[in-house]
Amino acid sequence: MLELSAVHKYFGGLHAVNNVGFKVAPGTIKAVIGPNGAGKTTLFNLIAGGLEPSSGTITFKGRPIQGLKPHRVASLGMARTFQNIKLFHGMTALENVMLGCHIRSRSGFLAGMFNLPRTWKEEKDIRARSMALLELLDIAGYADVEATSLAFGQQRAVEMARALAMEPDLLLLDEPAAGLNIYETAEIARLIERTREMGITVLLVEHDMSLVMDISDEIVVLSFGEKIAEDVPDEIQRNPDVIKIYLGEDEEAAV
């Protein structure tokens, strides 16, 4: 589904991503973890098209995507959420999800201005599809509430619904549990698993270890821009290098 090989990213003298390569197999949930400043978000932006790698290749469904604009990557079938939720101001939850249908609909400027019959019909379809997604995520009751005024957990759900509305093949989640309490985190975990059941591959960056260990099929560990481990959760938990970067060497000795 997604393959990175020998990806480097420099910001001036800072080597933010150093020779990172891994694969995400279709239908799996893969997590990228690492301490603050390990280069996780940078890696995400490289994949989603916000940044161009200094060198290396990123292929998505067999086609190179490095350096493409984010909207091109999105239209190839990759959706993402943001660490600090980015819902659109002044728009209802429903409208936010309807925006997710953007790439799956066609009407342009002229069709919109003249409100052609097919535009009218398309608009109805979009509305119905978005409403169905809100129902799926149990937030249909907030459809007409301004999205940014919802509780944090509900905002996450709306953002998730917006991403699902794009009918992606691959969903990138940037710290989906950030700022959530344990109940909301459990809810998100359930949602992510449901996403996989829908046939969508998931790649997530996360700090919350319990979430990552519970739902991931495979985990990549980054530290100072380098990949130091890639394995199934059980092995990662036993990996001495991983324990070292998370707990420090002295603490490891103490354990």
């Binding site: 916000g50 909207h71 980015k86 659109f88 925006l99 249908c101 953007h102 342009g108 919109g112």
Partner: peptide, 29 residues
């Protein structure tokens, strides 16, 4: 008609956040 259409919604999303607008596939430029 335009502002109540798919395009109008996309325009408002650009106003809200260009980054998020790109991420949902709007060719903001």
């Amino acid at each position: 008609n335009l502002i109540h259409s798919r395009v109008g919604r996309a325009l408002r999303s650009i106003h809200g956040s260009e980054e998020a607008s790109e991420a949902i596939g709007v060719n903001t430029a």
